[in-house]
Design a protein around this nucleic acid. Sequence first.
DNA 1: GTTGGTTAGTAAAAAAAATTATAAACTTGC
DNA 2: GCAAGTTTATAATTTTTTTTACTAACCAAC
Lengths: 403, 403
Amino acid sequence: MDLFQRDIEDVNNESRQLAQKRKIVSLLNKSEKPLTIPGICKKVKLSVPTGTKLINELIERNVIIESGKKETDNGRRPSLYKVDPDYAYSIGVVVLLKGISLSVFNLEMAESITFEDEHFELDNSPECLERVVAFVLDAIEKSGLKGKRILGLGMGITGRVNSGTGYSYNYFNFLEESLTDFFAKRFSFPVYIDNDTHVLGVAEQFFGHARNIRNAFVVNMSRGLGLAIIANGEIVVGEQGFAGEFGHMQFAESNKLCLCGKRGCLGTEVSGYALEQNFQEQVDVGETSLLMVNRSRDKIKYGHILKAAVDGDALAISLVHNMGFKIGKALGNMINFLNPGAIIIGGEFARAEEVLIDSIKSGMTHTALLLPLRSCELMFSSIGTEAASKGAAAIVLRNLKLI
Amino acid sequence: MDLFQRDIEDVNNESRQLAQKRKIVSLLNKSEKPLTIPGICKKVKLSVPTGTKLINELIERNVIIESGKKETDNGRRPSLYKVDPDYAYSIGVVVLLKGISLSVFNLEMAESITFEDEHFELDNSPECLERVVAFVLDAIEKSGLKGKRILGLGMGITGRVNSGTGYSYNYFNFLEESLTDFFAKRFSFPVYIDNDTHVLGVAEQFFGHARNIRNAFVVNMSRGLGLAIIANGEIVVGEQGFAGEFGHMQFAESNKLCLCGKRGCLGTEVSGYALEQNFQEQVDVGETSLLMVNRSRDKIKYGHILKAAVDGDALAISLVHNMGFKIGKALGNMINFLNPGAIIIGGEFARAEEVLIDSIKSGMTHTALLLPLRSCELMFSSIGTEAASKGAAAIVLRNLKLI
DNA sequence: GTTGGTTAGTAAAAAAAATTATAAACTTGC
DNA sequence: GCAAGTTTATAATTTTTTTTACTAACCAAC
């Protein structure tokens, strides 16, 4: 941000012009297509001569570039301008229980390079934190980003996180300072953190199905169960960043004990973990499945079961179907609460769309009121596995108001 | 708004200066205390000479007034300025099933006059709509507002309402146009509508306990059960304005049939209506209460029961306590969902604070996770019965960005 | 191809705003 | 009670921005 600012900034403290330049850059970056000078000036409420002056200065500094001429029906063809997509980069990091990954994105959010360490295991220790720092520094070293402008690093991390203060409550909570402050000291650019599920929500909001929808839920159905809430066009993180604890909401019908200590948590019935448990229970009472053919009962992970369901395995279908119905009921209740325009199913379970879609819809009808349900579209994420790191990097741009 | 604009506006189309003047007025109105010229200029990023010029023009037009001199430790004492509180007025109207009321507020939101018609009965007919129009016109006539600037009218109305489009779905839905468009034609100022519960939330957000809290729930516990959600500092109305359908969420333990057609709606167990039902049931199985001394079983309304609970009536206490526990459980679940910093109990039930507070808290502990619960404060509304009309009028100012 | 219509971009003139300088109002310390 | 220091407010000057006017680039129709 510092570099970025200094480039837009002039030598003198021209705060008014600086703000206008920032507006121009922000507008150009948000726009899908390149824009003309008259178009830009209209949007930022500037006269054409001053707008031209500022734009030329930004070109001088390599922030924006010309990008051909616009085809018009009549009149002189205007030049088109856009932000140089490679003027600056943002970094997205995802820290999960098992595995850490880092991707570098340019301003157009095109992924340029990705690093992964599948052997990484997250634990709440200074050593692990140092491993994260080393991983990031090493990746930056290898990526050839040296000397290039890095706007910042966004990090999605498992557990409870306060994105406002930058504190992480479950991991690396031994620090005196906030996690973002710690990282800022170690790196030469600002760091923003959020919960892995919220990060997925950001990705869906800017690049996925939630674009142009001001109220939506993004469900992270993987081994655990999380939910990102978009209300009034913004991700809701709540007072301390804990919003979206969907897995621990009391919607379950059974009374299974949850890791949180309570009974009745939805996550005990709907989650990758629960899917594995349910599968084993069914096998134990004599149910059969193609999955058992060349695997032992304990080695079957929820990913296998999801794949089997899509492939037509009866037991897997029945289990997944059952979960869809249950989460559908819970989501239906939440539809009454927040009246979202869309619910997007993301995470590993998204690949079982065919099996889940009808069961979730069916569950929703049991709890949701007619009118809010009618206008809530159920969708499945299509932005794939790199979604999380893209969302993490997007946090940086969001903070700089570039998206 | 038109009058208001024209007064700030100059004869020529000075859109830049106009925007700055609007900023100044907005800043002064939002500020609790009057401000100095240097203070204003700093906030709106204007030089002192230009700021002075604009402020003098606003004084010329009677929009803002001088308000004494500031006490400082050293230097020349600056003059203080504030918006003339009686420069303009906003009108708040509340349309309930039984009763309609209208209050006039000045820019400081001091209530100047109130009109009520307790005999009004809401039904979905053109005649009833005409009665509303007549009531408003009559009240304005009597209020002496003629010739004064009216910024607009905010209306809180029972039932489902889309505040964005201005359509009302349950009442006056026979109109071709939106309800706000209809009113705009009949009155000489803009009209904004919202659900009665959302309006209560706005009141609490700007004048009550939810001030300075970016995430909160405002529960409207009266004959029905509604909830206004404040997330990221804004009221969430959802995609069509249906957010907060708390009464129809499936949290109930019994299977009573709700008016909406579903079973398990929270409103069947927690609401003024349910309280009356429960009371009658208990009386029928032999329970006694002081309330029965000089009233017939059918004549006892939930308001009486709430008063009796506060006065120490055992049966009433037990019933209200029970409801507190149930709504507490439901709210606890929602705490996990949105991580609010406060929950404010408003509506008629707010007066039973002593009886409700512990039962609600107790219910919350059964469902809410420790961390989000710990930081969520339970409060009872203190802005009283005129809250709704104040909230309705506040919608007008919010739309003009004056609060 | 020339003329008329249309829009982009630039140059000169006019208007508006920001600096800078100065006067006025006030406190404090000697 | 008067000088030094501070802050507000206004006047004079400088800078910036907008308007207006004009030229350039393009299409279409004749």
